[in-house]
Simulated assay, not measured.
Amino acid sequence: MPEITLDDFNSLIHTVYEAGINPHKWSAFVGDLSGHLDDTLICLHAHDTVARASLGLLASGAAPEFIDSYVRDYATINVWANGMAIAPIGKLVQSEEIYDPDKLLKTEFYNDCLRSQSLVSASAVALHRSSDRMLFLSGNIRLRNHDLVRARVNRTFDLLGPHITRSFELMRHIPHQVEGEDYRATLETSTDAVLFIDRAGRITHCNRAGTAMRKDASFLAVDRDGHLHLKDPRADTTLRIALAAIARADFPAIPGSFPVRRAAGSPMRAMIVPLAHRTTQTMFDQIFEDLPIAMLVLRNQPTPQPSVAALPGYGLTPAESELAVAIAQGISLRDHADSRDVSIHTVRAQLKSVFAKTETRRQSQLAALILRH
């Protein structure tokens, strides 16, 4: 079974980021992904974790009547959904990790829902979670060629996960595109600073908040040729790496969100988002050298909260306790390290200690333990 080509993967990433700006594109993404993963039912779930009910489902690879019956009846008995409710955000989770396969065969969910579609397992990524709702992407795998398909689905989801979570973060903070309305106009209502950047690292356009940000000399500088320079050296290096990756259409190499510190004021959080139609050079790039290839989105970074005591009785240090709580909230190790201004190696060492003290082996197990307490 052939792997997804780099061109196909980049095409999927294009659609992911387009959907972050225009949510109507998520249907196209689900359809495109299904077309690349045979024998797999691709679903984008919106789920009420309290009522255990579907809030909506985008699916490709199943009959419409099956999708309707899932939303109406089967979502309430989906035994996998409970596990996804505590899964780390953006991380690949396999159905066997959240529900015993032998017990699954005895459930109403399997016998009434999965079995009719010859579905036997799933891989999924949690994309967003609030106190009572969650969003997750699942690849439900059919029995035929199961092992080969499963490996391919896992690799694809593992690569796509960070981009999808980043796109949903963009969608939550940037106003949605309105049909028939200039998208630049909608950006003006955002409190986030949005800067459009070309291949050379020059700012080509800003929204209102971005224009104000350009005047903050403690945060960034723009040279006489319009090139953007972040005053935080580490953040500026990350920005250069991201722009270079976008320019060569190497989407897996695009860094995730990153902190930007400044001499005065609270730190910011930055996210670099490729503009799908600008990543491949055309003849127009030879004429118009300032066509943007990326959006830099900047927002205030929440001030770290005081240490929270997690799992009393397990002997966790304050730093380990904070890390455990962050994992339960779906925060990545990298983001936690950045928010605490420590290295990723320090956080990984803390996690190893937490695993040993709590007798857990995975972040999902640790999150489940915290939520039970």
Rank of each mutant, 00 (worst) to 15 (best):
R150V: 06
E18P: 05
G315H: 04
G330Q: 03
L104A: 04
I67W: 03
A193G: 09
R152A: 08
L187R: 01
N207C: 06
A212Q: 13
H24A: 12
G315S: 06
R152P: 14
T280K: 15
L298V: 15
R166N: 07
G161C: 05
D48Q: 07
P302N: 00
T238H: 03
L55C: 08
T346C: 09
F66T: 09
R150S: 11
N82C: 10
V153W: 00
I370E: 02
P318V: 09
D8R: 11
I272M: 13
L41N: 01
V325K: 04
P233W: 03
A87W: 00
T165L: 04
M268Q: 10
I89H: 00
A62M: 15
A62W: 05
E181N: 04
L33Y: 00
R372C: 08
G83P: 06
E320D: 07
A294T: 04
I197D: 03
L135N: 02
R348M: 02
L316A: 02
K357G: 08
L159E: 06
K352N: 11
E169P: 06
Y110F: 14
F219T: 15
T358E: 04
L135A: 03
S353M: 04
L298T: 04
M213E: 08
A349G: 05
Y314I: 03
D290I: 11
L148Q: 14
Q117A: 13
A368R: 05
L33K: 01
D232F: 07
D102N: 10
G210E: 00
A126L: 09
L114E: 02
T156H: 04
L92H: 01
I4Q: 01
H227I: 11
A122Q: 03
L351N: 01
Q286T: 13
G31Q: 14
T189I: 14
A59L: 05
H336I: 11
D232R: 05
N111K: 15
A294R: 03
I174D: 01
S339Q: 09
R278V: 11
F219W: 11
R362W: 08
T303W: 09
L333I: 07
R133G: 04
I174V: 11
R334Q: 10
P259L: 08
N145R: 12
G31D: 12
S353Y: 00
V125L: 06
I98V: 13
T237L: 11
R248T: 15
Q94F: 09
S131Q: 10
P64E: 05
F258Y: 03
L195Y: 03
W26K: 04
I241M: 12
R72V: 07
G330L: 05
S54I: 07
V71Y: 01
R348A: 05
D232S: 07
N111Y: 06
